[in-house]
Amino acid sequence: MLIDMHIHPIFYGPICGDETEVAFRGDTFGVWKQGPMEFDELFAEWDVCGLTRAALLPLDVTTTVGGWVVSNDQVEALCKLHPDKFYGFASVDPHRPDALEVLERAFCQQGLRGLKLNPSKQRFDPADERMEPIYALCERENKPILFHAGLSWEPDAPAKYAHPLAFEEVAIRHPGLRFCLAHFAWPWVREMAMLMIKYPNVYTDTALLYVDSPEEQMMELFTKDMGPMWFERCFPRQVMFGSNGPRFRAFKLKRALDKVPMRDFARENLYWKNALRFLSGEEV
């Protein structure tokens, strides 16, 4: 089994009927020269690497950019088309006055499984007291949060809001809130490791491929950026497989990770068990 915890369904065919909207998504997210893809093409790629399920991430940038890079409604619609394949996440712009209502509807009526936030693009400090009601709602509803962390290729998205240390206060205040700092918070891998060692509710994912080939970058990540045993020894329950599609292709990351030496239990955790625990909070 393989679960991809990091997909932006920007070009998923069924939600690409409006060309202007698709162009807005591309420009806002910072991805170009790609176009709508139908499910047969997407799932052909899944089949190559044995991908079985994926988390779909929207982004609400209503107050900062004036729209959504895939909306909660669109994620809900995609999930209804393939409920056996997708875990739908919600998003909410923390600056909007009706943020809690949007989120409550997403969790309680739309069946969405977690919350996606991007402090860089949405321009907020994760430790800001104004975020507390959102975190409290996620905790009450047992929904995890996936934060963008580290380098962001999106335009107008300062990295200062996405440094791992910006999230430590959240981990201290909310030990019962599961949250993922995505992309291994690259380039701040050691700071990311520090947080995971100290806070068992803090997760990350493998959605990074910024400077090298997949084989090179995954080997660097697991054996040089970190000590080669750190994942297995120190936080084997906190790293999830994520591809960051459409920026990176899942099967190439999987191919590269298959070559990184690790014990079977750690690989199982990485490929699917940690994702299931992150989503539900229950032991797998």
Partner: peptide
């Protein structure tokens, strides 16, 4: 050709 391409917003590879 194994790096991030700003004109694509994606990695080549």
């Amino acid at each position: 050709h194994a790096h991030f391409l700003p004109t694509y917003g994606a990695t080549s590879n």
